[in-house]
Design a protein around this nucleic acid. Sequence first.
RNA 1: GCUGCCCA
Length: 232
Amino acid sequence: LNRLPEGFRLLESMKNQGCEPSVVIYNTLVHAFCKKGSWNAGKRVMMQMMRSGCEPNEVTYNTLISGCCRVGEIAEALVLLESAKSKGYVPDVITMTKLIGVLCDEGRVYEAAELMQQMEAKGCPSDIIAYNTLIMGLCKAGKTKSAHKILRGMTVKGFTPNAASYNTLISGLCKDGKIDSAAYLVDEMENNGCTANAVTYNTLIHAFCVQDRVEEAFKLFNRMKIQDCVPE
RNA sequence: GCUGCCCA
């Protein structure tokens, strides 16, 4: 990583020899900077590649947007998203999910939900993980009720909630002190063909213990053994 | 050449 200047020098000599660096080479440099946490250096590389007549592609944008998300630079990420869109690029679900997650972390859940709406409207299909990320954001914002609504809504859109979906909501409810609703969700998840796993039980057992409801914790512990789910 | 989710 301290050899980035060398990379630049190499780039220069390539150009001097009339060998134009490919997009992939530029992207590699952008990635190196982003991994280091300096998206702005990455952006400078992008500007340089444009100056040399090499158009950034989807990967360039995905890399830079991810780099911004990694350090919580939301404003810049959104700017990049716009310029990507203006070039007709559709960032992939993974990049979008990172943005959604980072927006949620900042408490900007509403914008996150909107972003997801937009991508679906664009025919860029979201997926379970994107939904789970949003559900988590809603839980963190204390909106467990909306989170539950989303979880039910995703079924309608053809996505089957998985264990992580339910675990996220269960965890959110527990942190909100609503252990009983959380425990009830286990039934709901199993009625929907989703098996409770070790994370599910861990979450609930921990929550019951914290509230000194040890007998109930034990009940779950036994149930988990009956389902031969490996305790951690 | 980029790559996202659940408890502790």
